[in-house]
Amino acid sequence: MKRRMAKDTLTGWSMKAAVLFANLLVFLVALGLLYKARPILASKSLGHLLTSSSWHPLKGEFGFYPFIVGTVEATLLSMVLAVPMCLLAAIYLAEYAPRRLRESAHIVIDLMAGIPSVIYGLFGIIVVVPIVREIGLALGKQNTGYTLLSGGVILAIMVAPVIISVTMEVLRSVPAEARETALALGITRWAAIKHVVLRHSMHGVLSAIVLGFARAFGETIAVMMVIGNVARIPRSVFDPAYPLPALIANNYGEMMSVPLYDSALMLAALILLLVVGGFHLVAHVILYRIEKRW
C-alpha cells in the first residue's frame, strides 16, 4: 500500500515538474534573451536603438528602425492581401458549403499549414519573384523581384491556413439555433450571416486576424528568401526590405566575433518575442472568453 501511495506521489510530482517546465519556458526564453541583450541596452538607450536607421555593426552602430519598419510593412501587406480572401473563404466553408466539403477543406488547410516554410520560400523564388518583377517592370519600377511585395504575397499564402481555420472554428461555434431562428424569419443566408453569425463572432474573427498577424510577424525563412534583405526603409512595395527575423537568421555566423553584435541580435529577438507574445496574449484572451460564453 505504501509503495503504491509513493508511486502515486512520484507520478504526481513528475507531472507537476513537466507542467511547470512547459509553463516557465516562455519566461525562461524571454529572461535569457533579456540577460543577453543587457550589454547593448547598457551602451545605448532603447529609444535610440529603436529609432536610429544607422546599422553598422563594425562601427558599433545598431539602429533597428529599418528592420522594424520592414517587419511591420511586410506583415501589414500580407494582412491586406490575406484577410479579405480568408474571411470570405471561411464564411463559405463554415456557412454555405455542404458538410462533406467542409470536412475535406480541413484536410487542405492542414496540408497548407504543414508545408515547411523553406518550401514556401523556394516556391516564392521560382514563382512569386519573377511575377512580381514583371508586374513591377510593367508599372515602370526598376526592381529585382526580391521585394516587399514578394514577401507580403508569400506571407499571405502562409497565414491563410491560420486565419481560415480559426475563423471557421469561431463561426461554427455560433449555436445553430441562432442561425436557424434568423433563417426562419425568411431572411437570406447572407443576411443571417451578417446580422447574426458575424455579430456574434466579431471578437473571434478579430482574434483569428491577430493570430495570423503574429504568425506573419515571426516568420523567418520563407520571407528572407524573397524579400531582398536590404537594410533601407522601402519607399514602395517594389523596394526590398529587411525584416527583424531575417536579420537574426542572416547573421548567425558573424555574431560570435563582432562585439555587441550578438547582444544586438538578442535584443531583436526579444522585441520580436514581446510583439508576437503580446498579440497571442490578446488573441487567446478573446478566444478564451468566447469559449466560456457558449
Partner: peptide, 16 residues
C-alpha cells in the same frame, strides 16, 4: 502559456 509558447517564432527558440 502553452498556447503562447506554441506561437513563439521558431527562430527565437533557436536563438535561445
Amino acid at each position: 502559456n502553452i498556447n503562447v509558447l506554441m506561437g513563439v517564432p521558431s527562430i527565437i527558440v533557436g536563438l535561445f
